[in-house]
């Protein structure tokens, strides 16, 4: 399951950040100029539609990296 989540997160980040992102690669929101607040929402909504999950507002606000995205998705899929 984690492999699939890694792939989905990598694909979304590649598209939104407009650069190649490998599955499992650590990408920090703080270090990506393109990862602004608008794209953050786009990333979250894309993740939700890809995995058919829903994040709560706190989770959306706290996500700060590709790793956070994978972790929160994994928790949601397991619940």
């Amino acid at each position: 399951m984690r492999t699939n989540i890694d792939s989905v997160v990598a694909e979304i980040l590649s598209i939104v950040l407009d650069r190649p992102v490998a599955p499992g690669e650590f990408v920090s929101r703080a270090e990506e100029d393109r990862w602004d607040s608008l794209r953050h929402i786009e990333i979250v909504f894309a993740l939700e539609s890809a995995l058919n999950i829903e994040l709560d507002e706190t989770e959306i606000g706290e996500v700060a990296s590709s790793s956070d995205l994978c972790s929160v998705a994994e928790v949601r899929l397991a619940s």
């Binding site: 989905v8 694909e11 979304i12 598209i15 939104v16 786009e42 909504f45 894309a46 993740l47 939700e48 539609s49 890809a50």
Partner: peptide, 9 residues
């Protein structure tokens, strides 16, 4: 699906 739409490039 936003994910499917954003993949169309």
């Amino acid at each position: 699906s936003r994910f499917e739409i954003m993949k169309l490039n």
